[in-house]
Design a protein around this nucleic acid. Structure first.
Lengths: 339, 339
DNA sequence: CTGAAAGCGCTTACAG
DNA sequence: CTGAAAGCGCTTACAG
C-alpha cells in the first residue's frame, strides 16, 4: 500500500505538506494541492488507520457492548444495534461490536487497549457491573437503559413510568375498570431490568389513582408457556376487560389465544402493548402499542457520545439523562368495554 | 495510560526486554520476567492496540459486512453475526461491524485503511459487486453464501440443492404425489439470492425423477400478504398434500392459515420448512424443517479466515468451497397422505 | 506558504 | 540472557 511518503514523493513535496494538503489544517498553494491530490488518486492512497490513531489518539471507532440474552427478544436488540451503527457511520465512526458474555472484562480490554474512542452500552442493568469500569476509563460512555446510578454517564431510555401511566389512562378514559398487566419474566427483573418494574409500579399507582383494578403479573418469554399463561389469566379474571402487555412474547402469542377463545380486540378486550414498530411489523400485530423507539434511542446515544468525544472540554460538560416520551400508536385495538 | 516504557522503567529493564518478557518471543531470566510482570500489574499496563498494529501490521480485527434488508428475516441474519462474533473472540479477534448500505465503498474503506486483517461477507449475491474489491485487497475474505464465481475466496453455504432433494424425497417416500413449494419473494432472487433457485430447481428435478407434481411459487416476505397467498394456494391446488417452505414468513404464517381452514399438520398436510433452530424457537413453529445452520456457517467462515490470516503461506493455499449438508429436524409434521 | 524533525507506543532485527 | 536503535505511517509543533 502507498504511504503518505509515496504521495509526497510523487507530488514532489514534503510529507508534512502532503499531510496538510489532505487535512486542510494549514493553507496550501492551489498548485501544490492539485499535485498532492493527483498523487493520491494515482497511487490510490488511503491513510493507515492504525498510524493515524497512534499519532492523533483518535481511533474513530466506537465500542458497542451488546448482550443477547436467550430470554430477551433478539430482533428488538438488533434495532438498537442498527440505529447505533448507522448513526455512527454518518458521524464518521465505525463500530466495534462486542457480544462477549463477560461484559466487564471485554469493556476493560477495549478501553485499556485504546481500540475505541467511546463506548455505547446496551442491556443496562439496575446495578450494572460494567459501570464502575466505564466510569474509571478516560473514554466517554453512553447508555441505552437506565441504571440505578447515572453519575458520570450519559443515559437514554424510554420513559417507562410515563408509559405505564399512558397505558392505564388510555383504558381508564374509555371506562375500563379492571385491567391485566403482563410484564416480562421475573428473572429479567432479577438480572436488573429496571424498566419492568418502572412501568409496572407507575401503572399500579396510576390505576389506584383512577380507581381501576390492576392485576400485574410476570409472563414467560416464549411459547407455548406464555400462551397457556394468558389463557389462565383470562380465566382467572373474568371481569377484566383490558390487557396491557410489557412483554413481547405475550404480544406475539395473544392473537392465537384470543382466536382460540373465540374472542377479539377491541370487541371483547382492549389491548395495548409496548414494543417497537419493527416488532409490530414482523409479527403483524393488530394491537395499539407504546413505541419503544430502539432506533431513536440508539441514535441519541451515539450523537451525545460523539459530541463528548469531539468537544475538547466535553469531559466537563454536565452529563445528561434523557427520557423519550412514550407515544401511543393507535391500531384500533381499544374501545369502551362491553356494557 | 502506562506505556511499555513505563513498565520497563519500573522493572528496571530496557523496553525491548519488557516487550520480549510479555510476548515470550525470546528467553528471559525468571527474575527479570517476575519484575516485568510485577510492573505490569502495578501499572495496570495494556498494550496500545494502534501502536501494536502499526508495528506488526496485524490489527486482530475482522471486518464483518452485513446488510439488513427489509425483506429478509433479520433475526436469521443475527444468528450469523453472533456465531461470527463469538468465534472471532475465541480466536483472539474483535469484530468491526459494517452495516452500511453501500457495501463496495465501505469494504474498500476498511481494507485500504488497514483497519482489519480479514473480511467476512454476509448476504452474498450471485454477482456480488463487493467481490472484485475483496479479490483486489491483500486481506483474505470468507463468504457465507455462494456467489457465481468463487475464485480467490473461501466460501461456505448450506447445500441448498441437497436441501431441495431431501425435502422432496421425504414426502415422496411417504407417498405424496402433489406438493407446493413456497420460495422467497422474487426480488430476493433478482437481488442475487441464488439459494432460492438452487433449492427450487433441485427440488423440481427431484420431483420429476420421483414422478411427483411440484407447484413452485414465490411468496411474500411478510404478513398479511403471505397469509392470503398461502390460502389462495391451498384453494388453487386442492390435490396437494405436502407443503415445502423456503420462506421464513410463510412458515411463520402457516399455523394460523391452517387453523383458519380447520386443517392441521400432518393430518391434512405434511409440512417441511427451511429455517434455523433459533427461528423455530422464536416462532414456536410446529413443523419439521431443514436446519439452515447460520451459527455453524458463521463459525466455519471465521475459522477458515483466521487460518488464512495467520498462516504465513496462507495466501497460496487452495481456496475452499464448503457446503454444509442439510439436516432434517423431525418435528412430526409429516406422515403419509390421506387416502 | 513549505520543510525537517520529533513523537505517538509498540516490535524486532542487530549487537553484544 | 539483555540493550540500544531502527522502523511501522501518520500528525503537528517548530523554523524559516
Amino acid at each position: 500500500m502507498a504511504t503518505i511518503g509515496d504521495v509526497a514523493k510523487t507530488a514532489g513535496v514534503s510529507r508534512s505538506t502532503a499531510s496538510y494538503a489532505l487535512s486542510g489544517k494549514r493553507s496550501i498553494s492551489p498548485e501544490v494541492r492539485m499535485r498532492v491530490e493527483a498523487a493520491v488518486a494515482e497511487l490510490g492512497y488511503t491513510p493507515n488507520a492504525g498510524a493515524r490513531a497512534l499519532a492523533t489518539s483518535q481511533t474513530m471507532v466506537i465500542g458497542l457492548l451488546a448482550q443477547f440474552f436467550e430470554d430477551e427478544f433478539a430482533p428488538a436488540m438488533l434495532q438498537y444495534v442498527l440505529g447505533i451503527s448507522d448513526t455512527a457511520r454518518e458521524l464518521g465512526y465505525d463500530i466495534l461490536l462486542i457480544t462477549d458474555s463477560d461484559g466487564p472484562a471485554s469493556l476493560r480490554r477495549v478501553t485499556d487497549s485504546r481500540m475505541v474512542d467511546g463506548i455505547v452500552l446496551l442491556n443496562v442493568a439496575e446495578d450494572d457491573d460494567r459501570l464502575p469500569i466505564l466510569r474509571a476509563t478516560s473514554q466517554p460512555g453512553a447508555l441505552v437503559g437506565l441504571p440505578g446510578d447515572c453519575t458520570g454517564l450519559d443515559v437514554f431510555d424510554l420513559d417507562y413510568e410515563e408509559a405505564g401511566r399512558v397505558m392505564v389512562d388510555a383504558l381508564a378514559d374509555l371506562g375500563h375498570r379492571e385491567l391485566i398487566l403482563v410484564s416480562q419474566p421475573e428473572h429479567v427483573v432479577i438480572r436488573g431490568g429496571a424498566y419492568v418494574w418502572r412501568l409496572r409500579d407507575a401503572a399500579a399507582s396510576q390505576a389506584r389513582l383512577r380507581g381501576v383494578e390492576l392485576h400485574a403479573v410476570y409472563g414467560s418469554s416464549s411459547q407455548p408457556a406464555i400462551g397457556r399463561e394468558l389463557t389462565a389469566l383470562l380465566d382467572t379474571h373474568p371481569g377484566a376487560t383490558g390487557l396491557l402487555l410489557n412483554n413481547e412474547a405475550a404480544a406475539a402469542a395473544l392473537p392465537s389465544v384470543l382466536q382460540a377463545r373465540g374472542v377479539s380486540a377491541p370487541q371483547d378486550y382492549s389491548v395495548i402493548g409496548r414494543y417497537s414498530d419493527e416488532f409490530a411489523r414482523t409479527f403483524s400485530l393488530p394491537f395499539s402499542f407504546i413505541e419503544s423507539a430502539p432506533d431513536r434511542l440508539g441514535r441519541m446515544a451515539v450523537r451525545q457520545l460523539v459530541r463528548r468525544i469531539e468537544s475538547s472540554d466535553g469531559a466537563k460538560e454536565p452529563h445528561v439523562v434523557r427520557f423519550v416520551s412514550p407515544e401511543l400508536e393507535d391500531r384500533g385495538s381499544t374501545s369502551p368495554p362491553r356494557p
